[in-house]
Design a protein around this nucleic acid. Sequence first.
DNA 1: ATCAAAACTTTGCGCGCGTAAAATTTTAGT
DNA 2: ACTAAAATTTTACGCGCGCAAAGTTTTGAT
Lengths: 354, 354
Amino acid sequence: MTNPVRFPDKGGAMAKNTIRNMEEFAALSGISRPTVSKYFNDPESVRKSTRKRIEEALEKYEYRPNMFAINQNRKLTKNLGIVVPYLADPFFAELARNIEQRCIAAGFRPTLYSSHGDQELENDILDSLRSLKPAGVLLAPLGRTSDRAIVEKFCADIPTVIFDSFLPDMGFAFVGSDNWQFARLIVEYLCRTGEPPSFLEMKTPSNPNANRRRKGYIEAMERLGHEPQIVKVDGEGWEFEEIGRREGGKALASGLFTSNTILCSNDRLAIGFLTACFEQKIRVGRDPDCQIRVAGHDDHPFSRFTCPPLTTIAQDYDAISRCAVETLFKAIEGSENKHETTLFEGKLVMRESA
Amino acid sequence: MTNPVRFPDKGGAMAKNTIRNMEEFAALSGISRPTVSKYFNDPESVRKSTRKRIEEALEKYEYRPNMFAINQNRKLTKNLGIVVPYLADPFFAELARNIEQRCIAAGFRPTLYSSHGDQELENDILDSLRSLKPAGVLLAPLGRTSDRAIVEKFCADIPTVIFDSFLPDMGFAFVGSDNWQFARLIVEYLCRTGEPPSFLEMKTPSNPNANRRRKGYIEAMERLGHEPQIVKVDGEGWEFEEIGRREGGKALASGLFTSNTILCSNDRLAIGFLTACFEQKIRVGRDPDCQIRVAGHDDHPFSRFTCPPLTTIAQDYDAISRCAVETLFKAIEGSENKHETTLFEGKLVMRESA
DNA sequence: ATCAAAACTTTGCGCGCGTAAAATTTTAGT
DNA sequence: ACTAAAATTTTACGCGCGCAAAGTTTTGAT
């Protein structure tokens, strides 16, 4: 094996800013090593005068304690894991960003992982997460395609808050959206303003939220005295836009929909379906000269920019991420121990598509 | 401070699957610790019979070496850093995913970071990356808003390949797209098929690629004997769609464009601009009944699903990520040392918007 | 069977820091 | 100025593993 040697400091006349360890740094700042160690664990825990001296030396020599040596001995690290099923979906990217920044603000070191829609990768991530000895993990599982046994075992070992995608009896808590309410809200709106909607979804959705949305749709339709119609289209994986365009387009062309109003299981599907409508020269919107109305769920970051802009139910990104993080901190502190579920309501976002 | 104690194994009658360290595991598998250590560093480096015994024991006791202890002593870790400026942009999410999987395939442990468009955060990321002692880093910097001095210093200390966004004289290498060629390609196409385009961009683009695209546009226009027209709109940050819609829309409404063909600096701007066109009931496309043509750069994952689908120049995601990763591996092995730049050409993707 | 090379074992040190206990100093209150 | 409390220093050990050197066994070829 080659033995790469690095020279971060070429050893010129400049001050030795290459402090090798805490021992050296402590000597240079005139403080004992244990006190310096205490400072790095909690700057407030040392006397103000001591803190000042350390911080002065810190600027002068720019020493940073060795991550690996620290975490090897700590009972509990300050590491956190954030796992989402598909990071190329801006919905998850946005949620992850939100959560990540809250963790940092709380003094933790979050690491972000994406399962890329792949079970094996999700398992691998949980596996390597174990070796990080994280204080806690925020996990949005793949859903249907998750390996239940492995996720459950992971949750049993490490304080985990599940979000977005519900898995029964796992983790310290679940934080997500009230998908029944989502469907009720949008169905009521659509019925009030036009024809009762048909429901477009994938045949075997990975995300269990899809199931609750379908049931919420059926319930709301029946309560309003309408006949629900579900159109299930083929398609695997996470390329929802393409499925919405190709398969949704097929359904549209072959006249499968009994209504002129299409409620899609999620916005990405709706975005693809809008493309299909365009391809078939079918005008979408609420105007009298439009032939069809389309709505979605999630308020995907791009939904505001479709043509026409997409009417949808907005997930409360902010509330979900805040609650997930706060719940995890409770779990880490071990103050409570019962499995709780928190669901947030969605808001109707009326745009021009419906 | 509370002292959270965990009992991952309640110590029942089941086999002790709680191996504390390599010493114990080595004893249980009947192999010496140094050999086991060797196995974990490279399973191929031990005799086949030994490997088999270790792997049998591995399944039986599911031991995993302690990450922190490993990395503390290794001269060079197997950690890699991947940094992108804005992960909520599916373009970077897709690129990051591609790169990440290549790194894993090569036996490294990549960690993904997003600067979220914020200089301070980019600096923090580089800072915490240092303490990870990564073997190398793949960095897509913020660009104009990057802290040059800090990035340069980082590159000097840690083998770094810069990608997407060029920063002069930094890192082991740069891998990106030939943005001049992008602009030439699309300008030629647009001129061949209709009116020569105006160019729409942000006043102070964060990404330096924008500058090269503008220059490439001007050059191509002049070479073809046309008068270039640049329309610069206000707007800071990374919410390109909104800027394209709001500011691009303003420019459109006030008749600022001298051409009926608008070439946008990137697809996200174009997506927002398409929304503005829709709002102003201006039909976009190549059909005779359309008033305007719109094109972009990048082949953003969503460009295929706009209405109309967006004509654009496709970045070669695959080639860029492959080259970036391979170049980094060269840097890590230290085989070469000259600063090289690799640019990939784009492909014209003709869709209905232009 | 013989022998050298390859693989393994034994031994032992070191990494950088957490952490505990005891000794010492500083701080703050009267 | 005196004293108890708080903060700091000293001392010493351990974490889990990399790594090197020297001795021992196994392997594979003649």
